[in-house]
Design a binder for these strands. Structure first.
Lengths: 337, 337
DNA sequence: TTGTACGCGTTATCAC
DNA sequence: GTGATAACGCGTACAA
């Protein structure tokens, strides 16, 4: 079914059908209705490829996700879902591209093949080839996370440095003197994962500011790693009474390790950090943590991207989220172990 | 940049460039290299829309996911990731469509706009309009999950009935006489969610076969619901000593409720069911459960879909997964509470 | 190896 | 103001 067939059945020319579809020219009510009737009857919709070819835009956004092999985190999933929903609200489709490294086929296909009008780039590294590639071909893009030098581009990010600092201050206020930061995996940190680097910076700054003793460790993003990591921490630092983390998937393991050591939360040990809401609520007791506003961020990313697409030369904008630390029940006054 | 520009710079015709690109005709080595050099230099790739228009295929698969408003489950996330990765291995892109109900704009855009060569449909209901819609327009599709009458179509599913029955038999073998099934939410069941219906059927059949006393309850897919649900179960059925579940997100709550009632697992109470591997491993003790092979299923779904696309009239195939129940540590001999 | 028709919508241009 | 004609976007593949 194509526009010519509709025109034939309605007894008009193709252009008239097109004008009815787009409304870019007035068509007499009588013919309009006749044409619309045929369209409705046959459930006709213009071929997206032909339209994209002619219009020079695809009505599609690209969403670059980390290679799926490494299980996506809840947070990442939340972004994907909210970006897709936000795009759908604008009648835009979303093309997914799982690409981490540099020369990725799927990424190249989308970018060089002009399959999308713009790209949302997730899981940005401090130094990221994909960013330079997109800038080079002039395809509008927004990053979730920011590079080390994010000037001149649009991005959305969470203020991990500020949030972790706030967690440390909260612990210090409660009298904790020895605190730990449970970071993400060493590989991720080595690859220049922004949240890890910035969380660490915020941690160190706050620890110094408050004159605390701070220790930071890397930890895999799963329960088993979390358990092992906390066991080692407890053994190596007997004075430790609190920890902050940005490693949500490690939380069930953190819980097990503390329980295994006979430490009650928050009586004997306080836990806090940055986590997706459901991880915070699944912790027991519920975790005092900053909830990453994934839905807002996905929505905002799409909004920013549409702005750039509409006005490529406008001044880039960005937004740094700093959600409040929700006081739940996992932190309390320090008590020597 | 387009093929004409490449041709101009290489001093040949557009068709020759096209043949170099596709390899569908031999081109003399000299001109081939000259053309390739220009292509490489300019990093040229054919416009995807133009190619799709001409070829009649988009090299894109559609993936219909549940509306993102309701948080995607880990299992669903696993599917999405594995489908995207599998598609990428075949140099195919994936277009996401979040659509639950009937008249969904995004779904219609993809289907009627011929944006994709085929569709993977997730989260199928026993009776599903999208299936009939796809069948009507003749777009190849594969469902993850199956309708009540899945004949004549290709699908992939997990044998929830068989797996839950196996769990019940396992519990019966351990001496349990009163067992519960913690199902998914009442709304989901009411909407015709296949896994819930089939799990329930398997549960009832096995309970009857072994002469057990069985109780089944619906439960929201989150920790709080799980906790409330199990508290009520324990209160209402004092003889209950074991449960099976397909509600993985409720597991942290199940754990809390059992701990709160002073019941040790598996000493006082056994827990088993069907869950994504990480939920089973995050449970403590690790959950004896059937691990849903999400990665295999996503890969297989793409493989099936490609078969249909290649041979639309071939006999539909399907695959019912029945993964082994991994014996971990959450089930043990029955002991009266 | 090349010329060219074609796939399908869109829109500028022309005619009434 | 309304309708039709035709060129165009870009790559593909048949005929020459």
């Amino acid at each position: 079914m194509n526009i010519g067939e509709i025109a034939r059945r309605a007894g008009v020319s193709r252009s008239t059908v097109s004008y009815v579809l787009s409304g870019k020219r007035t068509v007499s009510e009588a013919t309009r209705q006749r044409i619309q009737a045929v369209i409705d009857e046959l459930d006709y919709r213009p071929n997206a490829s032909a339209r994209a070819l002619k219009e020079g835009r695809t009505r599609t956004l690209g969403l670059v996700i980390p290679p799926a092999s490494q299980r996506l985190t809840d947070m990442q999933l939340g972004f994907v879902a909210s970006v897709v929903e936000a795009a759908a609200r604008h009648d835009l489709d979303v093309l997914l591209s799982p690409s981490g490294g540099d020369h990725d086929r799927s990424f190249e296909r989308i970018v060089a093949g002009r399959r999308v009008d713009g790209v949302v780039l997730m899981e940005i590294r401090l130094s990221d080839d994909r960013v330079t590639r997109l800038a080079k071909v002039g395809l509008p893009f927004v990053t979730i996370g920011r590079t080390a030098e994010p000037h001149g581009m649009s991005w959305i990010d969470v203020d991990y440095a500020g949030l972790i600092a706030r967690c440390v201050h909260h612990l210090a206020d409660l009298g904790h003197r020895h605190v730990a930061l449970v970071n993400r995996s060493a590989e991720l940190v080595a690859s220049g994962y922004g949240p890890s680097h910035r969380a660490l910076a915020g941690f160190r700054a706050a620890v110094a500011e408050r004159g605390l003793v701070g220790v930071d460790v890397c930890c895999g993003h799963d329960a088993a790693s979390g358990e092992a990591c906390v066991e080692q921490l407890l053994a190596a630092y007997p004075q430790l009474t609190a920890m902050a983390t940005i490693n949500e998937a490690a939380l069930p393991g953190v819980q097990r390790a503390l329980a295994g050591a006979g430490l009650a939360v928050p009586g004997d040990f306080s836990v806090t950090g940055v986590a997706a809401q459901h991880w915070a609520e699944d912790f027991s007791p519920p975790l005092t943590a900053a909830d990453v506003p994934m839905v807002d961020m996905g929505t905002e990313a799409v909004a920013l991207l549409l702005e750039i697409i509409a006005a490529p030369d406008a001044v880039p904008r960005h937004r740094l989220y700093s959600p409040p630390v929700s006081l739940r029940s996992s932190t309390g006054p320090a008590r020597p172990r």
